[in-house]
């Protein structure tokens, strides 16, 4: 590779969580003139908000506590950046609003039988999805006055649902599970939600153990999943993304590529950057980066490892997230309780 080999350099170490850091979310819309804002959550039952001061120093500006009684497993900002949703092992999802210089819990969504593991906002911000150890995925409609009405309870997974993620363009939701499958859910245009596709090992070249995480590329024609089977899988769809409302072809995801042999233990997180670099974080304490090999298109698309950062953390890496405002900045969260910021340097896409 010319232009300098790719390098992932640790730039900041954010400490404060008193237990493992489970999950991260960059605010997609921090407001005019504001620098990047990152939320992290973890086993200490808190959420921390991290901001970059004008002098480049990162500080914890807010600690959101006193609402969740157990681990805060994941968090997600609304597309307008004004609300933060947090999913907890206490069975609830909380909605926080920043007003008057403070984060205030403005709603608590109850309904799951036990641990809520993931929460995701639809691209318009009008729907929320949550999933739980109770095997169900719930879809909530965001209504005026911080009211949330459950509009669908999606049954289909036979075990815990680990993560839910809305498609960036389509009205499609993807869920991944301890039952080793990936499910694609779509509404039939009549607000009736159905499972339109189930991706399994036997039928689709899917995963052979728990699927922990899913992430879409920016365009929405590909997604990556990662698993306890120590692989990442790339999926693509032939759905017409210019006609997002027709609901046609939502069941069209097919296996494109499997990335294996890079992580030695469970891969907990995968995230696709707007510059098409995929990051993964795993139980082997490492972070790996991958990109598409464009030069071998005759044989079809192929993804390859760009670099592996061994010992990225002292313990398991639970979450990796690219910064939407700066696609060369990656955040990672670990069992060691720290959140780290990394800068990707050098030539990665040649």
């Amino acid at each position: 590779m010319d232009g300098g080999a790719a390098e992932l350099r640790e730039t900041h170490r954010l400490t404060g969580h008193a237990d493992r850091a489970w999950s991260l979310a960059w605010n997609p819309n921090p407001g005019p003139g504001a620098g990047p804002v990152l939320a992290s959550c973890g086993g200490d039952k808190t959420v921390r908000i991290w901001k970059r001061a004008p002098d480049g120093v990162w500080d914890c500006s807010d600690v959101l506590d006193g609402v969740h009684e157990r681990t805060v497993r994941s968090c997600a900002w609304s597309p307008d950046g004004k609300l933060l949703a947090t999913a907890s092992f206490d069975g609830t999802t909380a909605i926080w609003e920043y007003s008057g210089g403070d984060f205030e819990c403005v709603a608590t969504l109850e309904g799951h039988d036990n641990e809520v593991k993931s929460v995701s906002w639809s691209q318009s911000g009008s729907l929320l999805a949550t999933c739980s150890r109770d095997k169900a995925v719930w879809i909530w409609e965001v209504q005026p006055g911080n009211e949330h009405e459950c509009v669908a309870v999606l049954q289909g997974h036979t075990q815990d649902v680990k993560m839910v993620q809305w498609h960036p363009v389509l009205s499609v939701l993807v869920s991944v599970s301890y039952d080793n499958t990936i499910r694609v859910w779509a509404d039939d245009g009549d607000d009736d939600w159905h499972c339109v596709q189930t991706l399994t090992e036997a039928d689709n070249g899917g995963h052979s153990s728990t699927v922990w995480s899913v992430s879409f590329n920016q365009k929405g024609d590909r997604m990556v999943t990662c698993s306890d089977d120590c692989t990442l899988k790339i999926w693509d769809t032939s759905v017409d993304l210019s006609q997002p409302t027709t609901g046609e072809g939502h069941e069209s995801w097919r296996h494109l590529s499997t990335l294996s042999g890079h992580h030695g233990r469970t891969i907990f997180s995968a995230h696709w950057s707007s510059e098409d670099v995929i990051a993964s974080g795993a139980g082997d304490d490492a972070i790996c980066l991958y990109a598409e090999e464009k030069s071998t298109m005759v044989e079809g698309p192929l993804y390859r490892l760009i670099l592996k950062k061994e010992k990225a953390h002292d313990m398991d890496v639970n979450c990796v997230r690219w910064c939407p405002q700066d696609p060369r900045v990656l955040a990672s969260a670990s069992d060691d309780g720290t959140v780290k910021l990394w800068e990707l340097r050098g030539n990665v896409l040649e």
Partner: peptide
Amino acid sequence: DKERVAAALE
């Protein structure tokens, strides 16, 4: 599954 273990211990 460390997530299940963590939940069990809570």
